[in-house]
Amino acid sequence: MSRFTRTTAIVSVAALLLMAGCQAAASPSASAGGSPSAGASATANPTPVASVPADQLAFPGILTVCIDIPYPPQEFFDAEGNPTGADPDIAAALAQRLGLADRVENSVFSTIIEAVTSGKCDIIISAQNITTDRLGQVNMIPYFQAGQAFVVAKGNPAGIHTELDLCGKKAAAETGTTEVDYVNGTGDYAGGGLNKKCTAAGKAAVNMHEYEKDTDALLALSSGQVDAYFADSPVAGYYTVQQPDQFELSGVTVEVAQEGISVPKDKPELGAALVTALKAMMTDGSYLQILTKYGLQDGAVDISEVTLKTGS
């Protein structure tokens, strides 16, 4: 046969074999009980309260956690460049109670859900609000709650005191956050949101600048590019306390909502194990201890809220 026909035939057969092979690999294999690994942190080792099947972990014996760092004080880097903050600490404590070591993967927030559903990491603990869209992709376990706040430059030069003062002005936030949803009226704020209120009041919409890293959104405020920086209240509060000569709270806030640990839907045992571990942390006081360490005790959730939310 001609070279053209032969090439086509080979490519087609190869493609079919690939597809078949992928389908076979996708079907779940028999789950085996996970063994606790050595190498967990040395101090005050709590005994494991649950185990995770090995095939539900990206790396055996390790709980790989996706976190978008920095978002202080929930996650940031310490002086040596190691991840620290409420979320990494909670992640480490959970891993211990599962008999696993923990590893943090610094991620980009706008694609963090894809990172966990594609298996790059096992779970996400990154100040994620529980939303309908996210529940469509992952299961979430409530572990914290917080509101959202607008930060302005010191002296509030743009005069932002109420929500509607933001209309027609420029604001910065991180891509993929509920902050963006709130202003644009997408996600769980569909049909509502700030811009809808602006147009209803006959004003121009908020000019939203989205940044892949939250720190760049803050930089936009400090370089004078935008009039306000929009983030979760703990974070907003952190920056205004750390740099009071640069930033202040505008006083404009959005209501408190729950944040959750994201677990892929096809890893039910992992989800169940995490629920058990988190409850154990709340019972023995380590959960509140961690939050208090970072001044976040007001965002604690009650143990009765800790379930595996699936959105159905």
Partner: peptide, 22 residues
């Protein structure tokens, strides 16, 4: 990186929020 909403960024944001999220 500086939040210019050009073609790639537009699709990237559509993936991060809105009706076509994820």
């Amino acid at each position: 990186i500086i939040s210019v909403p050009e073609l790639y960024v537009t699709f990237s944001r559509k993936n991060a929020s809105g009706p076509t999220v994820f």
